[in-house]
Computed example of a mutant assay.
Amino acid sequence: MTDQQSLPPQRGPLVYRQSIWTRLTHWTWAICLFFLLLSGLQIFNAHPALYIGQQSGFEFDNAILEIGAINTPNGPRGQTTVFGNTFDTTGVLGMSGSAEQPQYTGFPGAVTIPSYRDLATGRVVHFFFGWIFVAALFVWFLASLINGHMKRDIIPQGADLSGLPRDALDHARFRLHHGRRYSPLQKLSYFTVFFILFPLIILTGLTMSPGMDAAWPWLLDVFGGRQTARTIHFIVMALLVLFFIVHIAMVLLAGPFNELRSMLTGWYRTSPGTPTQEGDKP
């Protein structure tokens, strides 16, 4: 009798999971979001505060976030105020760098593009990659609509919603399945990113442009003013960063080689018993 322990582990079939359009736009977004985040923090440092309302906020008490530096009996300290609650953030926000060469900026130069104060360059970089980001989203939307990727893998169906609690529990227990298609939790996550977060960050970015406000004045009404749009823009950016962290964690847990192969070649190793053709029974 053959010793079961000596048998090689069973492997599922390889399936073609990601089209060339999905892969190209995926990596385009990854590059764009990197430069958009760091150049966006450079722009934010020009006035490191967020407000709610139509007013600019310089002489109004409507700030929900303020980052800066203050003088204390022990010397300058970094300070961050969130909804009226103040925290000492020396070394991270408001004041960073060495004791000999401190930086008095909202976010430290290590996480901004450029690393020194240069609002003009930051804006050029931000707008350049912003429009590439928008173009990639248009290409993805059109290609996904034509090849069925959007309906099949992104928009949750009734069965996905009913299976969401179990899938969320499996993810919480790190019981990850490798199927031909995205799981209910993946569909809901990607749907939120593509149809809520991406449109929000684009529209709020346009709302901060005086030229776009002149062409589309309804943007100011939709988002409650330019300052509110700036705050929403910042919050959505933070949510996208959180999504990225969770996304990378899931890639590492699910098997980075298999996940990277899927996004580089399109081929994905599924779990044993997965049908090789769409619609087949295992």
Results as ranks from 00 to 15, higher is better:
residue 7 L to S: 07
residue 7 L to E: 00
residue 8 P to G: 03
residue 9 P to R: 08
residue 10 Q to D: 14
residue 15 V to P: 07
residue 21 W to D: 12
residue 25 T to M: 13
residue 27 W to N: 01
residue 30 A to T: 03
residue 36 L to E: 03
residue 39 S to K: 00
residue 39 S to C: 05
residue 42 Q to S: 13
residue 43 I to K: 10
residue 44 F to I: 04
residue 49 A to I: 13
residue 50 L to C: 06
residue 53 G to A: 05
residue 61 D to A: 11
residue 64 I to V: 15
residue 67 I to E: 09
residue 70 I to N: 08
residue 72 T to P: 05
residue 78 G to C: 00
residue 79 Q to G: 13
residue 79 Q to A: 15
residue 80 T to L: 06
residue 83 F to A: 06
residue 83 F to R: 04
residue 84 G to T: 08
residue 85 N to I: 09
residue 87 F to V: 02
residue 88 D to V: 02
residue 89 T to W: 04
residue 96 S to T: 08
residue 97 G to I: 05
residue 100 E to T: 14
residue 101 Q to A: 11
residue 104 Y to M: 07
residue 105 T to R: 07
residue 108 P to T: 02
residue 110 A to H: 10
residue 112 T to S: 13
residue 115 S to T: 11
residue 115 S to C: 14
residue 117 R to S: 02
residue 117 R to K: 12
residue 121 T to Q: 11
residue 121 T to D: 01
residue 122 G to L: 02
residue 125 V to I: 09
residue 127 F to Y: 15
residue 127 F to D: 13
residue 130 G to K: 09
residue 131 W to Y: 12
residue 134 V to C: 13
residue 142 L to R: 11
residue 142 L to Q: 10
residue 143 A to T: 10
residue 145 L to G: 08
residue 147 N to A: 01
residue 149 H to E: 13
residue 151 K to A: 08
residue 152 R to D: 13
residue 153 D to A: 06
residue 156 P to C: 01
residue 159 A to R: 03
residue 160 D to K: 05
residue 162 S to G: 10
residue 167 D to L: 08
residue 167 D to R: 12
residue 168 A to C: 15
residue 171 H to W: 06
residue 175 R to T: 14
residue 177 H to D: 09
residue 181 R to S: 08
residue 181 R to E: 13
residue 183 S to E: 06
residue 183 S to Q: 07
residue 184 P to N: 05
residue 190 Y to Q: 03
residue 192 T to V: 09
residue 195 F to W: 02
residue 195 F to A: 02
residue 200 L to H: 12
residue 200 L to E: 08
residue 204 T to H: 13
residue 208 M to V: 06
residue 214 A to S: 15
residue 217 P to S: 08
residue 219 L to R: 05
residue 219 L to F: 02
residue 222 V to M: 07
residue 225 G to N: 09
residue 226 R to V: 15
residue 229 A to Q: 00
residue 232 I to Y: 03
residue 234 F to P: 10
residue 235 I to N: 02
residue 235 I to F: 07
residue 242 L to G: 15
residue 243 F to L: 08
residue 244 F to C: 09
residue 247 H to S: 01
residue 250 M to Y: 05
residue 250 M to R: 04
residue 251 V to R: 00
residue 257 F to P: 09
residue 259 E to C: 10
residue 260 L to M: 03
residue 264 L to T: 11
residue 265 T to V: 03
residue 266 G to N: 00
residue 267 W to K: 12
residue 268 Y to V: 08
residue 274 T to N: 14
residue 274 T to H: 07
residue 277 Q to L: 02
residue 280 D to P: 01
residue 280 D to G: 01
residue 281 K to C: 06
